[in-house]
């Protein structure tokens, strides 16, 4: 066990602690649990930044150098984006949906065994831009995903008239809907740039579409149609939420595709 592994493990543990705290907060309405979960999340973010620093200084893994480093940066950005949004609205409960995503991504980023970094020949000036905009876009989509999950739950509770408990703790339907709209609106252009640069780069390298890239494209189509339907046809609520959720699942599949490809390479 080296220092980096220890920092990595403590980061994961802190995320797990925050995640369980948010769940208790959501299901039991325990304000104290919510407060501790927020603190644990803050600590996890600090540890996470520390982990990235150690990883770079001690092991020489540049942030965003390969898919694993990028994932680690991505989950940090999602957590950070959530922490900031949480403070602005009554959104602490959404932590129950977003911390599992960050934890999962962090753990996936730790899968790196003996995977070689992106071969020198394929590297280009576009790579950092490509990775950075993709990460920002996905972070925004992750927020939209959490809001969409909460929306669907909230709407079901309202229809079934179970309006005490969890229903009272989650944000209002309209608030969730507008968070979803704003996040997708913010994420879409970023992700589009990411996709275009990626395609350009892959075409230059003469590589065909991998599974990861195809899933990424499907995700882009989903988010694009949700956005179009929202703006042009006035889509709102449940349908937009489900579209957002599906889009994000394809996005996760795209990331999974990249992970598998790189593992295979190793």
């Amino acid at each position: 066990m080296n220092a980096v592994t220890i920092v990595f493990a403590s980061t994961a543990l802190l995320y797990a602690a925050a995640c369980s705290g948010f769940f208790v907060h959501l299901s039991r309405g325990n304000a104290v649990a919510g407060m501790w979960a927020s603190r644990a999340l803050g600590a996890a973010i600090a540890a996470h930044a520390g982990y990235l620093g150690c990883d770079y200084l001690l092991l020489g893994n540049t942030p965003m150098g390969d898919i694993y480093d990028s994932l680690a940066v991505l989950s940090l950005m999602i957590a950070l984006a959530f922490l900031i949004t949480m403070r602005r609205h009554r959104l602490t409960v959404l932590g129950a949906f977003i911390t599992p995503v960050t934890l999962l991504m962090l753990l996936a980023s730790g899968l790196r065994g003996s995977v070689p970094p992106v071969p020198e020949g394929v590297r280009s000036a576009l790579l950092p831009l490509h990775v950075a905009v993709n990460l920002l876009g996905i972070a925004a989509f992750a927020l939209a995903f959490a809001a969409a999950v909460a929306y669907v739950i909230q709407e079901q509770l309202l229809r079934r008239k179970h309006v005490i408990g969890v229903f009272q703790r989650l944000p209002a339907l309209d608030v969730l809907d507008s968070i979803g709209l704003k996040s997708v609106t913010a994420g879409f252009p970023l992700f589009t740039v990411g996709l275009v640069t990626g395609t350009f780069w892959a075409a230059r390298g003469g590589v065909g579409l991998s599974a990861g890239q195809s899933f990424g494209l499907v995700a882009w189509l989903f988010f694009g149609s949700v956005l179009l339907a929202r703006v042009a046809a006035g889509w709102r609520g449940r349908r937009a939420a489900i579209g957002t959720m599906l889009g994000f699942l394809f996005l996760l599949a795209a990331i999974g595709g990249y992970l598998l490809r790189d593992l295979h390479l190793g």
Binding site: G29, N30, A31, V32, Q154, L158, V163, I164, F167, Q168, P171, A172, L173, D174, V175
Partner: peptide, 27 residues
Amino acid sequence: RTETEIAAGNVSVSSIACELAGQIFGD
């Protein structure tokens, strides 16, 4: 008030209606 849910939900019909409207529309 903060540590228990003693006042979490309303009990009069008109305030429940108002609370539900708030949970749908927010502001």
